[in-house]
C-alpha cells in the first residue's frame, strides 16, 4: 500500500495478489487495463480468475498511467515476466492510450462483464459512478449489456463534482460520507441546483445562513443521489442491483440512493473500483480461448 497525504481529496492506492494462485500454473494469462480519468486499474487473470491487480491514480499522462498500473499489479505478483501475458485489453476513458494493449473495448461492455464476475450472475442493473461519468447498465445473466447510458458530459453526480464540492467545504473526500451524517436535526432537502457551479454558490448561501458544513454536505450528497437516480431510472432498475466505481465507497451518497432504488445492493469482498479492468481481462480471456492470444 502506498499513500499520499499531501492532497487531501485523494484516495488510497492499493495492489493485491491472490495468495491461492500461481502464475506458473496458468494456461492463459489475460490482462485488462482500465484507464479512468481519476484512477487506473490493471487486472491480471490466470485462466479467468483474478491473479493480481493494481489500483492507482491516473497521472496527467495516460500511457504512463496504464504502464504504472500494470507495473503496480506485477509488483504484487512478484516474479512473472511480462511476456508471459497472452492478451491485453484496454478500456475506460483513456483506453486509446494503452500502448501495450492488443485491443480496446468500451467501459460499458467491460463494467457489465466485470460486475457479473465480482457480484455474480444475478446482477441485472449496474450503476458505476466514476470520476467524470455516470454509467447505468442493464445486463443479462452472462453480463451482456441489454440497455445502457453513459453521462460524461456534465459533472453533476460524478466523482469530480463531489471533489469540487468537498474541496470548497475543506472536507477530505474520504470523510465526506461519514461527515454528511454528523449534523443535528432533520435531514435537509437536497441542494436544488443540478449544475455543480451553481450548487457551489447555493452552498455558499447555506453556509452564510449558518448551516453547519456537515448539513451542507448532507444536502449535496442528497442532490448527488437524486441526480444519479434520475439516470438509473432512465434505463430502469431490475433486480439484482450492484454498484461499481469509486462512489460505491461513499456512504453519504450511497445510503441516500438506496431508498430511491428501493432494493438492496449486492455486496462483494472485491474492490469495486476494479470492475472495469476485471471485465476487460475476462474479454481478454474469452479471446484467448478463441485462439486469439499472442503467439509464443
Amino acid at each position: 500500500m502506498t499513500e499520499d497525504k499531501k492532497e487531501f481529496w485523494r484516495w488510497t492506492e492499493s495492489n493485491w495478489k491472490n495468495p491461492d494462485m500461481e502464475w506458473k500454473d496458468a494456461q492463459f494469462i489475460s490482462v485488462g487495463i482500465d484507464v479512468g480519468s481519476v484512477s487506473s486499474q490493471a487486472v491480471i487473470m490466470a485462466d479467468g480468475q483474478v491473479l493480481a491487480y493494481g489500483n492507482m491514480r491516473t497521472g496527467s499522462d495516460s500511457p504512463n498511467s496504464a504502464r504504472n498500473a500494470l507495473n503496480f499489479a506485477m509488483e504484487a505478483l512478484g516474479d512473472m515476466p511480462e511476456d508471459r501475458m497472452d492478451y491485453c485489453i484496454g478500456t475506460g476513458y483513456g483506453r486509446v492510450n494503452v500502448p501495450f494493449a492488443d485491443r480496446t473495448i468500451t467501459e460499458i461492455a467491460c463494467h457489465a462483464r466485470g460486475a457479473n464476475f465480482i457480484y455474480g450472475p444475478n446482477v441485472r442493473t449496474v450503476l458505476d459512478v466514476g470520476g467524470q461519468d455516470i454509467k447505468a447498465i442493464q445486463c443479462d445473466e452472462k453480463g451482456k449489456v441489454t440497455n445502457f447510458l453513459m453521462n460524461d458530459k456534465c459533472a453533476a453526480g460524478t466523482g469530480r463534482g463531489m471533489e469540487v464540492f468537498a474541496d470548497m467545504l475543506g472536507v477530505s473526500i474520504q470523510e465526506v460520507g461519514d461527515r454528511s451524517f454528523e449534523f443535528k436535526g432533520e435531514e435537509p432537502p437536497a441542494v436544488s441546483s443540478t449544475c455543480v457551479v451553481y450548487a457551489k454558490s447555493e452552498a455558499a448561501g447555506l453556509l452564510r445562513m449558518g448551516w453547519a458544513r456537515e448539513k451542507v454536505l448532507a444536502a449535496y450528497c442528497k442532490a448527488m443521489a437524486e441526480r444519479i437516480y434520475s439516470l438509473v431510472e432512465r434505463v430502469g432498475v431490475k433486480s439484482e442491483f450492484a454498484v461499481t466505481g469509486g462512489m460505491a465507497k461513499n456512504r453519504g451518497v450511497m445510503d441516500r440512493i438506496m431508498p430511491l432504488i428501493g432494493m438492496d445492493r449486492l455486496t462483494t469482498p472485491w474492490d469495486t473500483q476494479i470492475a472495469g479492468a476485471v471485465g476487460a481481462a475476462l474479454f481478454s480471456h474469452a479471446l484467448c480461448m478463441k485462439g486469439k492470444g499472442r503467439k509464443k
Binding site: K144, T146, N147, C154, S193, T194, C195, S230, L231
Partner: peptide
Amino acid sequence: MLANYGYKDASGDYFI
C-alpha cells in the same frame, strides 16, 4: 441492446 447516446444536464435530457 438499447444504446442511449447523449446526456442529461441541468437544462434537460438529450438522448438518442
